[in-house]
């Protein structure tokens, strides 16, 4: 897959520090978190989601992520806007990686900055749950002797 990075084509969110993107490049978790920290915040919660080696007893060799890219960006933008409406937070950063990912490599980072930690934890949990339900990205699990596209619960 060629390298690519698509970032907020036309953001409708008001806050200048929000961002969301999808990329085939490795993710730097700390750098993503630092991008969204304003002076008014006292807490940042960052989810580092990475490729798990064992799922229900089966050993994964690697994963391949694919997205319906323009729609994925639209859905990520909606998530950021909804998170701002529902939680007392300042900024959100979401980055999802695509392509082949090895065991332990970060596939998704969600970082939320807030004046107080509780809202940051709650918003981060809500964002990953909603991302897994609404953003059109799929993972193919490759294991010894086979491969399968994972279909979400929704």
């Amino acid at each position: 897959m060629p390298e690519k990075e698509i970032q907020n084509p036309k953001s409708k969110t008001q806050n200048r520090l929000d961002f969301y993107k999808i990329t085939t490049e490795p993710l730097d978790v700390g750098a993503i978190a630092r991008k969204i920290v304003p002076a008014s915040c006292g807490a940042i919660v960052t989810l580092d989601g990475f490729v798990r080696q064992f799922t229900k007893g089966r050993e994964t060799e690697y994963l391949v992520y694919e997205a319906y890219e323009p729609m994925a960006l639209k859905e990520m933008e909606k998530l950021v806007a909804r998170a701002h409406a529902e939680f007392e937070i300042e900024n959100v950063g979401i980055v999802h990686r695509l392509g082949r990912l090895e065991i332990g490599e970060t596939s998704v980072v969600i970082s939320v900055a807030a004046p107080h930690r509780r809202a940051a934890f709650e918003a981060c949990e809500w964002l990953i749950k909603e991302l897994k339900r609404t953003v059109p990205i799929w993972k193919k699990e490759v294991y010894r002797g086979g491969e399968t596209w994972i279909e979400g619960a929704n």
Binding site: H96, V108, L131, K132, T134, V135, P136, I137, G152
Partner: peptide, 8 residues
Amino acid sequence: VFTAVSGG
């Protein structure tokens, strides 16, 4: 047309 999403 796609299956239930499975990102994350």
